[in-house]
Design a protein around this nucleic acid. Structure first.
Lengths: 101, 101
DNA sequence: AAAGAGGTTATCACAAATGATAACTGCGTC
DNA sequence: GACGCAGTTATCATTTGTGATAACCTCTTT
């Protein structure tokens, strides 16, 4: 065998992609939404008040927080939301060493 | 004074928003892009190889990584990118206790 | 039971991110 | 200098997130 180069790397990558595509988008999104709700509630705000601060409508806040929503928000949307309650966003990339069955 | 309620909270929030709007979008985006590039390079991949894994084109990868780009990527875009190099995304909300002049 | 508060869902219009193609730069190599 | 490699930039088409409005649901209160 040659040393691990692009071809093998790509296969591994695609394996990850394939297995986790739907799962990831759901879980990542799910976690974020839970955090959004928690942040807002900790600040003691309603969706409507949140909407007022962010100069939008409560329905949009609801959609953003909604777990069943399968939209993938923009980074700036999350940043704005966080800023509205006095937080900032930190994006961390963690190695994905999970065992695949 | 009454206890701190929505009105005062909103004023503070808007202050944060106003001061940091442009700054935040730049800095947050800037940091992320630097991380993206670092991740890809650590994996020893070119933009073109990255594009192949993600089944897109190298120009799109370049745009995503480009610091001068003022787009705000979708969460799923970052997640996919990270997954391609064996990482997952963790989004942390940190209190923004910075001193404002 | 009527009214209000808090949240959800549907829909439409609009803005913005992404996909795709092509042309270009800079750089090293032959 | 021609060639290939890595990355950039511009442009257009398409997809998708977001803004806005309205109707609805569930509690709670009166």
């Amino acid at each position: 065998m040659t040393r691990p180069t692009f071809k093998s790397f790509k296969e591994e990558a695609l394996k990850r992609e394939g297995v986790k595509k739907s799962y990831d988008k759901l879980s990542a999104g799910y976690e974020v939404r839970k955090q959004l709700i928690a942040l807002r509630q900790k600040a003691g705000l309603t969706q409507e008040q949140m909407a007022e601060i962010l100069q939008t409508n409560k329905s949009n806040i609801s959609r953003l927080e909604s777990v069943s929503s399968n939209i993938s928000p923009k980074l700036s949307t999350l940043t704005d939301y966080a800023a509205a309650v006095g937080y900032k966003l930190k994006i961390v990339f963690v190695p994905d060493n999970e065992v695949r069955i």
